[in-house]
């Protein structure tokens, strides 16, 4: 999931590498007549805003589906969508998303995690020796795998700990790629040092596959942040970077409230460098000294499913919840 399509055209070299993408509509061209159909679908399906100034990206994003459905243009595809929404809606809504992500993106959040957050949580969890991390809107998996690499590189320090990393996204195709752990030459050169490439990957043809020990620490599940979370989950760290910025204020409030219920009282949520939670101080407060890091407010009644410091679990209010995810913890021990 992560975000709707970037307003900036991709560099020419990468468009060429992508192959079949048709020429982009000129930035100055008027949106197609059917633009509101796509904007509405995006808002309903993912809660994200697809603004008019990004309408020139519609053709590029939807060209494969247009070809598959034999539609000559966007208006024809919109007509096909109206006739068969249950089949086409998920495909079109997912195609409108931008799966932009890369390994160790922005670096600073990972450095901060290692320098201050993990040592604190390690001390706080020394009895149960278990740490749960959720990478929300993880797209093709580079963020949760970056975390898994970090723990693998500190193997001795985390010996005997259960490290559970969950990656979720609403895009099924992104999750399929994430599960494969297979990345292109371009993808492994963004954010990933050559030392890490040699340490954690093997080469398969022209692509690079993450080794099993990195992949086995991460579990991927489809999840739409617009929907209620499954019950019983409690994470120590939630990565929700570069996704909230694309929600309108109301949607953002809903999503933040959900994330808040799944975060341990002493946990942290990590946002993108350009994001803040200004206006949501009732849910989160900035973590001292850590840009992009936020801690839950101390209002324990909002923690819903996470146990408080005495181990009491507070029930959720008014949301149906499915069964919590179950990690196969024994073989996830570092």
């Amino acid at each position: 999931m992560t975000a709707p399509a970037s307003p900036f055209p991709r560099p020419a070299a990468r468009c060429a590498a992508a192959g079949a993408a048709p020429a982009l509509r000129p930035v100055t061209a008027a949106p197609p007549r059917s633009f509101p159909v796509y904007a509405d679908l995006c808002a309903r399906y993912s809660g994200l805003k697809f603004s008019e100034e990004k309408s020139y990206l519609l053709e590029a994003r939807l060209s494969a589906i247009m070809r598959r459905e034999g539609c000559a243009d966007l208006d024809a595809l919109a007509a096909a969508l109206a006739k068969d929404p249950s089949r086409l809606e998920p495909d079109i809504a997912e195609a409108l998303l931008n799966n932009e992500t890369f390994f160790f993106r922005d670096r600073a959040p990972f450095d901060e995690l290692q320098a201050s957050v993990l040592p604190r949580l390690k001390a706080a969890r020394s009895a149960e020796r278990r740490l749960r991390i959720w990478s929300a809107a993880c797209s093709t998996g580079q963020e949760p795998y970056s975390l898994s690499m970090m723990f693998a590189e500190e193997r001795a320090s985390w010996h005997g700990w259960g490290i559970e990393i969950l990656g979720t996204d609403l895009s099924r195709s992104a999750l399929t790629r994430a599960r494969s752990g297979l990345y292109t030459q371009f993808e492994v050169q963004r954010g990933l040092s050559t030392h890490r490439l040699l340490q954690h990957f093997t080469k398969e043809g022209e692509r690079w596959r993450l080794k099993n020990d990195i992949r086995s620490r991460v579990r991927f599940l489809p999840r739409n942040l617009m929907h209620p979370l499954p019950g019983g989950e409690c994470f120590d760290i939630i990565f929700a970077r570069n996704v909230l910025m694309y929600f309108g204020r109301e949607r953002k409030a809903e999503v933040l409230a959900r994330l808040r219920t799944a975060l341990a009282p002493d946990g942290v949520i990590i946002l993108g460098a350009a994001e803040t939670l200004f206006g949501f101080q009732d849910l989160f407060r900035p973590a001292a000294g850590s840009r992009g890091y936020y801690s839950p407010t101390l209002d324990i009644t909002r923690t819903a499913i996470c146990p408080d410091s005495r181990g009491t679990v507070h029930p959720a209010r008014g949301e149906h919840r499915e069964s919590p995810i179950a990690f196969p913890t024994p073989n996830q021990r570092v």
């Binding site: 560099p11 070299a13 990468r14 890369f102 030459q185 371009f186 050169q189 963004r190 954010g191 040092s193 050559t194 030392h195 490439l197 040699l198 093997t202 080469k203």
Partner: peptide
């Protein structure tokens, strides 16, 4: 992998696989 490992063993600090673009050089 063999070329990359040989380069790093010889004292290279990083390794770019062509074709490169601005984004990879920056990274």
């Amino acid at each position: 992998m063999e070329h990359i490992r040989a380069a790093m063993d010889a004292g290279a600090d990083e390794y770019i696989m062509k074709p490169f673009d601005r984004e990879i050089i920056k990274a």
